[in-house]
Amino acid sequence: MTTPTQDSARPEMDRPGEGRLVHAPSDHPAIPRARVGVVLVNLGTPDATDYWSMRRYLSEFLSDKRVVDYPSWKWQPLLQLIILARRPFKSGEAYRGIWNTEKDESPLLTITREQTRKVAEGLEARHGERVMVDFAMRYGNPSTDSVLRRLQAAGCEKILFFPLYPQYASPTTATANDHAFRTLMKLKWQPAIRTVPAYFEHPRYVEALARSVREAYDAAETPPEVLVASYHGVPKRFLMEGDPYHCQCQKTTRLLREALGWEGDAIQTAFQSQFGPEEWVGPQTVEHVAELARQGKKHIAVVSPAFSADCVETLEEIQEEIRDAFLEAGGETFTYVPCLNDRDDHIDALLAIIDNELGGWV
């Protein structure tokens, strides 16, 4: 990440390097040079796996009206008195199974930091110190508010806000953008801000996905018969109310199939992580893979195109719960295709998207 230079001069100052505005008094405090900020944003992570850390994280997440839009008078008593009395134990156990013990943090945090480092290196090679890169989480730390304030204090008068969700959904992309704008509402001097749109059909993103699948298939001892593209689920009501997520997921699957040159049902779409009594978009991944096994498909692979970095939904839910459902139903080999994470082709795709969205700013 580019380190802020607190005493470098803006173009409107008297001479480069002095850090004083034209005609300003000699005792005017130095201010940073004007820059452009880029913020990579992901869902979030608990600070630790103990009960209270998990409860704080889950309370923030499940209190978000974009995630659970039931009336507060109905939802909050249920959440605070019943769900959060028990769920932090189960979630903490899941996170402990995947926790990066060396860094004492979640894999999502580790991977997002490395993605940010590589993106920062790429942008520095293109634009020098004019562009600063940082990352934030919608829930947990580093918070969106703290990162946007830090970039503004470092001289970023323009900020590109990049939710790392290839497919747009109101519980992911929209809530990330909402939170950024809430910070702007509290600032006396707001930076100009742009948000990056969904990139589910960007050619470089699709090609990086296809390459990751080819590599996983080449490394598999037994070639998978079916590839399941598993996306995070949403209530079916969201689709009916105009959220484009389901449609964008379906298109990503189609584009991936075309990039791989495959036919028919060689790749299928399913949705994971359902909870609550509502009807969700389907089929459910955990049920779908079991049905594939019962149909005689003994060797499958699963890829997660909606996740830009491996996290509890992929490292625990897919590689344990969904894998177990497939094997218990008679499946024999289960291949997980890792998320794109900090692969070079993924970073190249992110850089191409960023370069396009920075048009006119750098």
Rank of each mutant, 00 (worst) to 15 (best):
V39D: 15
V39M: 11
V39F: 02
L40Q: 14
L40S: 14
V41C: 14
N42V: 02
N42A: 09
P46D: 11
P46S: 12
D47Q: 06
D50R: 07
D50A: 02
D50K: 01
D50V: 05
W52K: 07
W52R: 07
S53D: 08
R55S: 03
Y57A: 10
L58K: 01
L58D: 13
S59A: 06
E60I: 12
E60P: 14
L62I: 03
S63K: 06
S63E: 08
D64Y: 01
D64V: 03
V67F: 06
V67R: 04
V67W: 05
V67Y: 02
V68D: 02
Y70W: 07
P71K: 13
K74A: 08
L78R: 14
L78C: 01
L79E: 13
L81K: 06
I82E: 05
L84K: 00
R87Q: 13
P88Y: 10
P88N: 06
P88A: 14
F89R: 01
F89T: 13
F89W: 08
K90E: 15
K90R: 10
S91G: 04
S91Q: 12
S91R: 09
G92E: 12
G92S: 10
E93T: 13
Y95A: 01
W99R: 14
N100M: 06
D104C: 11
E105D: 02
E105V: 08
P107V: 12
P107Y: 04
L108Q: 12
T110Q: 09
I111L: 09
I111S: 03
T112E: 14
R113C: 06
R113V: 10
R113N: 08
